[in-house]
Amino acid sequence: MEARRSRFLDVLYPRRCPACGDIVRPKGELICPECRERFSYVAEPTCLRCGKEILEPEMEYCYDCTAHTRSFDGGVALLNYDQRAKESIQGFKYGGRPEYADFYSAELMRRYGKRLRRWRIQAIFPVPVHRSRERTRGYNQAEVLAERIGELLDIPVWKGVLVRKKKTMAQKELNAEARQRNLEQAMEIEGDLRGLKRILLVDDIYTTGSTAEACTKVLKREGVERVYLACVCIGKN
């Protein structure tokens, strides 16, 4: 019965390619084989803090992480945030394509699975969105991605614990210090984190690092010792 239902859903809602947006061919794949190379994968060497590509092999940290204090302890990112990646994420985030998370999570594991396991993560936290935005989109894309990664790593996903209680003001109207304060005031913990020392924070896009920093500070105030990041897309220096 379950197999029949799955085939029926495949006919009604065939999987779409995260690169081209068309129905994936051949059936059963997560991406059209010829589309895989359309993405710009993050290449080594990468920043030891955020996972961004760095320009010189002798550098340990990117310019952004050198210039700004970071509270998180390490990160990995799958794709450089170019036009192709932007279109893919927009489909995932706003276009009703949660199945893209299957490809993103599988690729993150293929490239960084060993590193993620070395971090000895105890729990996975999705970066929260305000409830009004989640209602509009139908889901929190970071939560969908976190669930897939949790399944592959066999690590629990803590949903609804790190929450965004306030809708943030328009960030573009604020300077860097005000943006950071704005985000930190929006984040709260609802629950008991005792015993959690090492967590993975999951999001779809890393740009300035302000959101990851705000989440990390809130988590560390509650006793978490190590916060690591995993994201699909990251900006360049």
Rank of each mutant, 00 (worst) to 15 (best):
L196P: 00
A230K: 15
G223L: 11
K172W: 12
S210P: 03
E107M: 14
T46A: 09
A77I: 13
P45M: 05
R70H: 06
R70W: 05
E29P: 08
G138K: 07
A212T: 02
Y206H: 01
L116M: 14
S71N: 03
S40G: 12
K52T: 12
Y206D: 00
C231K: 09
V11Q: 10
N80M: 08
A123N: 01
V144M: 01
F72M: 03
A67R: 08
Y100H: 10
C35Q: 15
T207A: 11
R84L: 00
A230G: 14
I23N: 11
D192M: 08
R179V: 06
K172D: 12
P18C: 07
K167N: 10
T207R: 12
S40H: 09
I199L: 00
E184H: 11
V144F: 00
L79D: 04
L196C: 04
R117E: 11
T211E: 00
L229H: 01
D154W: 15
I234S: 13
E29S: 14
N80R: 11
D22N: 15
I54N: 04
I205N: 11
L79R: 04
G74I: 11
R7P: 06
N175R: 09
C233R: 03
E2G: 15
V157K: 03
V227S: 01
E225I: 14
C215I: 14
D204V: 05
E87H: 05
A214R: 07
R115T: 14
G95A: 08
N140C: 00
V76D: 08
K114T: 15
K217L: 09
C62H: 01
C215V: 12
L152P: 10
N175M: 07
I23P: 09
I149E: 01
A146V: 02
D73K: 15
D102H: 05
I199D: 00
F103K: 10
F39S: 07
E134S: 09
T168P: 08
D64F: 06
C62W: 01
Y139G: 09
N80W: 04
A67K: 04
D203Y: 02
L152N: 11
A230R: 15
A85E: 00
E58W: 12
K52G: 14
A67T: 05
W119M: 02
E60P: 04
